[in-house]
């Protein structure tokens, strides 16, 4: 079978796998961000919690993804094939990465800006929502880009357990000694990573029209 034939035959399945891959990458990103925001704020506010949370996040990040995929079913009483394991594992990684990012982003808000807001009579939550978080957007967005790209790459590991996404093309191709599925999977995975990265970059820019524009990184 030639590459073109294979692609034609499997177009539908490839589209399905791509959709799954997207879903499994993006959902944990959102969950991770939602969890990391309050945790990061907590870490930022407490001198004692910050090193603890950062160290914990570092240790969590140390656990290889494949190991986490396998251990989660035991902890959650889910089946090993359940995509929920992947979503939760990646949410945990994303949170671990972003807790520190959010804390550092908030810490990078200039002290005199905070003092001004304080003295002007902003209440604590008003200051967080209207002043600190908007100013921390560039740092958080940079962290989110790293998390997004990593997620897209990690998701494919779940193929070893049989959870369907683009990684499934790798195992298929490997068993058949056939390059086309593997290359297709790698390319699509790269494209997804690139697109997500670009989208977050754009979103970050549109949320921060106030930033001096330097060349994009």
């Amino acid at each position: 079978m030639t590459a073109a034939e294979w692609l034609r035959h499997n177009a539908g399945e490839i589209a399905d796998l791509t959709a799954w891959h997207l879903w499994l990458s993006i959902l944990p990103l959102l969950i991770g961000l939602l969890v990391a925001l309050p945790l990061g704020r907590l870490a930022h506010r407490s001198r004692r919690l910050y090193p603890m949370l950062v160290a914990l996040a570092g240790l969590v990040y140390t656990v290889p993804s494949l190991a986490l995929f396998i251990l989660l079913p035991k902890l959650l009483s889910t089946r090993i094939l359940d995509p929920v394991n992947v979503v939760i594992a990646l949410s945990v990684y994303t949170t671990a990465l972003l807790v520190r990012v959010v804390a550092d982003g908030l810490a990078a808000v200039p002290a005199d800006v905070i003092q001004s807001a304080h003295a002007m009579g902003y209440r604590s939550h008003q200051r967080l929502i209207r002043i600190e978080l908007p100013i921390a957007v560039p740092v958080i967005a940079a962290g989110l880009r790293v998390a997004a790209v990593s997620n897209v790459s990690i998701v494919s590991m779940a193929a070893l357990l049989g959870v369907p996404q683009l990684g499934s093309l790798f195992t298929q191709g490997f068993q058949l000694h056939f390059f086309t599925p593997i290359v297709t999977g790698v390319v699509l995975s790269l494209v997804i990573a690139l697109v997500l990265d670009g989208l977050i970059l754009l979103a970050g820019h549109s949320l921060t029209p106030w930033q001096p524009r330097r060349s994009a990184r």
Binding site: M157, V186, S189, L194, D197
Partner: peptide
């Protein structure tokens, strides 16, 4: 940055094959 986006598993299999 580009290397971070590479799916390790796929690359490993391509290398082996």
């Amino acid at each position: 940055n580009a290397l971070r986006a590479l799916p390790t598993l796929g690359v490993l299999m391509i290398a082996v094959l």
